[in-house]
Simulated scan of single mutants.
Amino acid sequence: MMYRPEDHVFALSERYELNREGALRVNGHDCLKIQFRLEGHASFRFGSKHLLELAPYEAAIVLDGSDVEKDCLVQPGVTSTIMLGCDAEFLSRYFEGDCRDLPRQIRQFLADKSMNFYCGSLPMTPSMVAASRALLVSTHTGVIRRAYFQAKIVELLCDMFQSLGASETPDTLPSRVIAQLESVRERIHQQFAQPLTVTELAHAVGTNESKLSRLFRERYGVPVYEYLRNVRLNRARELLRSPNYTITDIALMVGYEHPANFATAFRKEFGISPRQGRIVSVQ
């Protein structure tokens, strides 16, 4: 759903499912665009030189003063995103005066809209995740909706600028720790159907449960188990499209030993039962 609280800014909230890879052209220049990705994988291609991969709970930021072609390749499965866009006039109004606290790239954009192309990605913080989810499920209407969306847009911009500014300094985590966290995340995506526990994941990379939980949330914005649950339930939604598996089969295939626990988690995440999810997926 597209929403424009005013001429110089927009928010696009989307949740959809693809049976095969899809390609979208990202139009516009002389503006800032940020995508907050809650579900699904995508890659961004900018002309022939730039390629950016985006996973769930990551955000991509694009500053572009040129007409270079921008394509978003979305992988099959469920996708949930919030896309924000605004121009220099909107940013100048909210961040007028001393801009030294803003990230270097934003300062350059405000000083010269025709700046060279920039793109990058960052893990979403817990506040980014919460604000993005709030926009996806918002039921506000009329002038209240306009005020609510504009407030959330500014909140997300502030969180992104804070994270982008922090990323300009050397990473506070040692490279060894970052490699451990990436290993845990990769294992979750590859072995989500197995009965993984946070303790087991921690021991596999040579640390303890408490330390892994703290560092994983710090880097990726969500707890380890919530990340694992998200991967499992999104895979379950994909499997529900197939008539070849019963709901009990699907529960076991995504790592739930008891179908009742799977049904409870599915309803909590998506607001409907797995049986209702199957009906929706085939319509």
Rank of each mutant, 00 (worst) to 15 (best):
M2F: 11
M2A: 02
M2C: 01
D7L: 04
D7P: 00
H8S: 12
G22P: 02
R25W: 08
R25Y: 08
V26G: 15
N27Q: 12
H29A: 12
H29D: 13
D30A: 14
K33H: 09
I34E: 10
F36M: 01
F36V: 00
R37G: 02
F44W: 15
G47T: 06
H50Y: 15
L51D: 06
P56D: 02
P56I: 05
Y57R: 13
Y57Q: 12
I61S: 12
I61M: 15
V62F: 14
G65P: 05
E69D: 09
D71W: 15
C72W: 12
L73N: 01
L73M: 10
V74M: 13
Q75N: 11
S80L: 14
S80M: 11
I82D: 11
G85Y: 08
D87S: 03
Y94G: 05
D98N: 12
D98K: 04
C99D: 09
R100G: 10
L102M: 01
F109T: 04
K113Y: 04
N116L: 14
C119I: 05
G120Y: 09
G120M: 04
S121C: 02
P123L: 06
T125H: 01
M128E: 10
A131I: 10
A131E: 11
L136H: 07
H140A: 12
R146Q: 14
K152V: 07
E155D: 13
M160Q: 13
M160D: 05
F161R: 03
S163N: 09
S163F: 02
L164V: 01
L164R: 07
G165I: 06
G165P: 13
E168T: 01
D171L: 08
T172A: 14
L173K: 02
V177S: 10
V177K: 07
Q180R: 15
Q180L: 04
S183H: 08
V184D: 08
R185G: 07
E186P: 09
I188A: 07
H189I: 06
A193Y: 06
A193W: 11
Q194N: 04
P195W: 02
L196I: 01
T197Y: 11
V198M: 06
T199D: 15
E200K: 15
G206K: 05
E209H: 08
S210P: 00
S210R: 14
S210I: 05
K211E: 15
S213G: 07
R214A: 12
L215C: 04
R219D: 00
Y220A: 04
R229P: 03
L233R: 00
P243V: 05
T248Q: 12
A251Y: 15
M253T: 03
G255E: 01
Y256R: 02
Y256M: 02
N261T: 06
A263T: 14
A263S: 11
T264A: 11
T264V: 10
A265M: 01
G271K: 03
S273R: 05
P274W: 03
R275E: 14
Q276E: 12
I279G: 03
I279V: 15
